[in-house]
């Protein structure tokens, strides 16, 4: 209980901090860049619910992200829905998509599941490419509405919304991790047959994790078109989202809710700095190198390294 109250205090402070930042930071680019980092926190945290806890490696995070984004675009085009409703609708649709992907886990394990998720991503991309209502392959422009009175620009509003989403995602992941759901998922990851035979409802848990993970990823993508003022399939379905969603928890440490957050801040932060200062090709190289280095040298991520260090320090007299 004490842990939860500490977490709640931290969360409240973060919301106030985010709100304060939108008032007092003058540099517009700050919000533009931080939005991306926050978006990756949501994406990585969502991925970790199925991939980190449950051990089912989703390689199609970009599908959920982009379908969420396009869902919002389609709704804006037809009904001019408000942003929170867009996010909710996107989460609903990608939650369903997640449920469908979860149903795949009935028969597929390990790398076969991962390949199937890649397939889902490409099929979704092809459908969007051929859907002229949302712009097809050429993409479509989405104009930001006027910012509400409290925020001096729409990007600031989006930044605040994404900060709330990130908090929600992290709180949810933390809840899953500490509850019986998390224990069940970990049991599935370690040995699915054994878990099943001692009475863990494996199918229910997998479907739940896949649905929740998908819905959060879709929510992360929903404001994307408004943020960019434009959307087209190739960039929305970019492999970068799929790989980052998996690389960030791996780098941070996938056993704990804090791992994806650390990984996202580190990787997305570095990428934002590198894109501005050097080049975007270097981004790809950084992701590649970090993936290889961490998988090889620190299989349990930064948190794993940290625990090792603490354990060693504790042994000293």
């Amino acid at each position: 209980m004490r842990n939860w109250s500490r977490f709640l205090i931290g969360a409240t402070l973060s919301v106030l901090l985010a709100l304060g930042l939108t008032r007092f930071v003058g540099n517009e680019y700050f919000f533009f860049a931080t939005y991306v980092v926050l978006q990756f926190i949501v994406l990585a945290t969502a991925w970790n619910i199925l991939g980190g806890y449950g051990g089912y490696v989703n390689f199609g995070a970009s599908a959920f992200f982009a379908v969420g984004a396009y869902c919002a675009v389609a709704l804006t085009q037809s009904y001019a829905l408000a942003l929170p409703l867009q996010i909710l609708a996107a989460a609903l649709v990608t939650g369903l998509l997640g449920f469908a992907v979860g149903a795949l886990t009935l028969r597929l394990r390990g790398i076969y599941f991962s390949i199937a998720t890649v397939a889902v991503a490409v099929i979704c991309e092809t459908v969007i490419m051929n859907w002229s209502f949302v712009g097809g392959a050429r993409g479509t422009t989405v104009l930001q509405p006027a910012a509400p009175a409290f925020f001096s620009s729409y990007t600031r509003l989006l930044f605040f919304v994404m900060a709330l989403l990130a908090l929600l995602a992290v709180a949810f992941a933390r809840f899953v991790e500490t509850s019986w759901i998390g224990r069940g998922l970990r049991a599935i990851r370690d040995n699915e047959e054994a878990a099943e035979s001692v009475g863990v409802p494996t199918l229910k848990l997998k479907l739940f994790a896949a649905t929740a993970s998908g819905a959060l990823m879709g929510a992360a993508g929903a404001p994307f078109a408004l943020y960019m003022n434009f959307i087209e399939p190739t960039s929305a379905f970019s492999l970068n989202y799929s790989v980052s969603a998996l690389a960030m928890p791996l780098i941070g440490g996938s056993a704990n809710w804090l791992g994806p957050v650390i990984g996202a801040i580190l990787l997305a932060g570095t990428q934002q700095i590198v894109t501005v200062t050097i080049s975007s090709e270097l981004n790809v190289l950084i992701v590649g190198l970090l993936l290889v280095v961490f998988v090889v040298a620190a299989p349990h991520g930064i948190l794993g390294l940290w625990h090792k260090l603490v354990a060693r320090g504790g042994q000293r007299p």
Binding site: V57, S114, V243, L250, V287, G288, L289, L290, L291
Partner: peptide
Amino acid sequence: LRGLAFFFGIAF
């Protein structure tokens, strides 16, 4: 997971 991540890293 780790093998996939490794080969993806190599590919990049």
